[in-house]
């Protein structure tokens, strides 16, 4: 594959920051809100935002099923924060009717690091990302309670799992898109090229 086209799920959330980070990682990035737009991309980023809102809008506008189908068939996906929640096979404490897309055999706890007062920045070492720790920006962030055998833990913070990869699916509790450090987006772009 030459230059992969990576979509950013644009139902709600920090879409623009992901578009900028992907462009910096030499990918062609575009917004995806409709099933026909999903069909035109090689890979997808699920941004930060409100997971309940995203889940609702995805179901309402017919995005949830096509997305699950694409993920099952191997499309590379990267989710940050709310995106990590959407990629979990199971949520520990879902709101009524809240459904994820799945893709990683893991159980997540929403808002696990606390409310906004507890939101924080800290350096995080991520396996497979060379050049020292990344700046982890955690905003009302979830953590991963446990992962299945197929999932690889890439990072922990304070004893909690905050970055996971399973096959072509990557997820972080924190927001690299809010920093100028595009190494995780570069890692994802590399995964997309390898998959193509």
């Amino acid at each position: 594959m030459s230059t992969p086209v990576i979509g950013v799920l644009a139902l709600q959330g920090d879409v623009r920051e992901h578009l900028v980070a992907l462009a910096a990682a030499d990918a062609v990035a575009r917004r995806v809100r409709r099933p026909e737009e999903l069909a035109e991309v090689d890979a997808l980023v699920i941004p930060g935002g409100e997971s309940t809102t995203m889940s609702k809008l995805a179901a309402l506008f017919g995005m949830a099923e096509p997305l699950r189908e694409r993920i099952r068939s191997g499309m590379p996906v990267y989710g940050t924060c709310a995106g990590l929640i959407m990629l979990a096979d199971k949520i520990l404490d879902p709101r009524s009717g809240q459904e994820t897309f799945g893709g990683i055999d893991m159980i997540v706890r929403r808002n696990a690091f606390g409310r906004q007062n507890e939101s924080f920045e800290a350096a995080v070492e991520v396996a497979g990302v060379p050049g020292g720790p990344v700046e982890g920006v955690f905003i009302r962030a979830p953590w991963v309670e446990s992962v299945g055998a197929a999932a690889e833990v890439l990072a922990e913070y304070d004893g909690h799992i905050v970055a996971v990869r399973q096959g072509n699916v990557l997820a972080t509790s924190f927001h690299p898109e809010l920093t100028g450090d595009h190494r995780l987006h570069a890692l994802f772009a590399e995964m997309v090229r390898a998959a193509g």
């Binding site: 959330g13 920045e121 955690f138």
Partner: peptide
């Protein structure tokens, strides 16, 4: 952020970043 063991709360990036999550 300072060091790995001292998380920084209430930074401008964390405050503004929260609003970025509400967009749309």
């Amino acid at each position: 952020p300072q060091a790995a063991d001292t998380p920084a709360t209430g930074t401008a990036r964390v405050k503004r970043g929260m609003a970025e999550q509400l967009k749309g």
